[in-house]
C-alpha cells in the first residue's frame, strides 16, 4: 500500500521568506486528496516539495517510508508523477510525442509499442484521441490541460500530483476530470494529490481535503464534511458563505456570500 508522509516540513525560496511552516501530513490510504487555500498560501510549493522539484529547508517527505531527499530524481520520478499548472510550449511537438514524454522512465532511445498503447489509452480517457497529430502549441488552454493530465497518467506512478488540473477547463470537463481522477485513485489504489480552487468540486469528489492558511500552514485536514465548513472558509479565505448539503450525495455545498475586505485577512 502506498503511503505519503510529510514530516515537519519548512520551505522558503530565500532566507527570511518562509513559504511553508511546519507541514505535517500522513496519507496512508489511496484516494483523491485535494489541497485548497487562498492564492499564495503555498499550495504549489507543497506540491513541488512532494515531487522533489524543490527540497524542504527542514523536515522530510517520505514515500512508502523512503525519504525522497535520499532518492535520485529518477527514483522519485518512478513513484511520483507531477503535472504542472502551466506547460511550456517552445518548439512544441505533436500531442502524441508530448504525452510520450511521460513514458521517459519506461522507454529507451526509441518508443516501443507498449508505450504507444499507453499513450493512446490515456488519450482515449482524456477524450483527445483525435488531437494526436496536432502540435501542442496549436491547442487551446483547456486542451493543453487535458494533454498534460494524459502525460501524468502515462507516467504510471503510485503518487500523482496535479497542480490545478481543472484550471482552464469548461464546467463539464472540470467535473469529468475530477470524477476521472477519483476513479483512477480508487481503481489503481494510488494517491492523487491535486490543487483545486473550486470548493464545490472539491467537496463532491475528494476523499480528503487539506486546507492551507496563511502563512503556509495546514489549517484543517479531513473529509470534505469536516473541512469545508462556513466557519473554516470565512477564516481562511475571508469570505462569508453558507454551507448546506447538496441533497444528492450528502456532501457540503458552498453558497458564497460577500468577501470581507480587510488587511488582516488578505495578508497583503
Amino acid at each position: 500500500m502506498t503511503t505519503l508522509e510529510i514530516k515537519d516540513v519548512d520551505f522558503g525560496y530565500d532566507e527570511g521568506h518562509i513559504v511553508l511552516h511546519n507541514i505535517n501530513l500522513n496519507i496512508t490510504e489511496p484516494g483523491l486528496y485535494c489541497v485548497i487555500g487562498p492564492n499564495g498560501v503555498g499550495k504549489s510549493t507543497l506540491a513541488k516539495c512532494v515531487s522533489k522539484i524543490v527540497n524542504p529547508l527542514t523536515g522530510e517527505v517520505l514515500i512508502n517510508g523512503r525519504n525522497i531527499k535520499e532518492m535520485t530524481h529518477r527514483e522519485v520520478s518512478e513513484v511520483v508523477g507531477y503535472v504542472p499548472a502551466f506547460s511550456q510550449d517552445v518548439f512544441s511537438m505533436s500531442v502524441v510525442d508530448t504525452i510520450m514524454i511521460g513514458r521517459h522512465n519506461h522507454r529507451r532511445w526509441g518508443s516501443r509499442k507498449k508505450d504507444l498503447e499507453m499513450v493512446y489509452k490515456a488519450m482515449t480517457i482524456m477524450r483527445i484521441r483525435d488531437l494526436g497529430d496536432r502540435r501542442f502549441n496549436e491547442l487551446s488552454a483547456g486542451q493543453h490541460q487535458k494533454v498534460s493530465i494524459a502525460r501524468g497518467l502515462v507516467q504510471e506512478t503510485e503518487v500523482l500530483i496535479l497542480d490545478e488540473p481543472t484550471a482552464n477547463l469548461d464546467v463539464k470537463f472540470q467535473v469529468y476530470v475530477m470524477e476521472l481522477l477519483r476513479g483512477v485513485a480508487e481503481k489503481l489504489g494510488i494517491i492523487i494529490l491535486t490543487i483545486c480552487h473550486d470548493l464545490n468540486v472539491t467537496a463532491k469528489y475528494s476523499h480528503k481535503v487539506i486546507m492551507l492558511e496563511r502563512p503556509g500552514k495546514i489549517f484543517a485536514y479531513g473529509t470534505p464534511e469536516e473541512v469545508i465548513t462556513a466557519e473554516n472558509i470565512e477564516k481562511v479565505y475571508g469570505i462569508k458563505c453558507r454551507v448546506t448539503n447538496d441533497g444528492e450525495h450528502g456532501v457540503p455545498l458552498v453558497i458564497l456570500g460577500a468577501p470581507i475586505m480587510s488587511d488582516e485577512i488578505d495578508g497583503r
Binding site: 522539484i53 535520485t72 530524481h73 522519485v76 504542472p84 506547460s87 511550456q88
Partner: peptide, 23 residues
C-alpha cells in the same frame, strides 16, 4: 545524439524535466 530523448524532455521546462528524473 545520445541525449536526444532528454532534449525533448527539457522542452517541457526545468521543473517538469527534473520531476521526470533528469538531473
Amino acid at each position: 545524439f545520445r541525449y536526444a530523448k532528454e532534449l525533448n524532455l527539457i522542452l517541457l521546462g526545468e521543473n517538469q524535466a527534473r520531476q521526470m528524473g533528469l538531473d
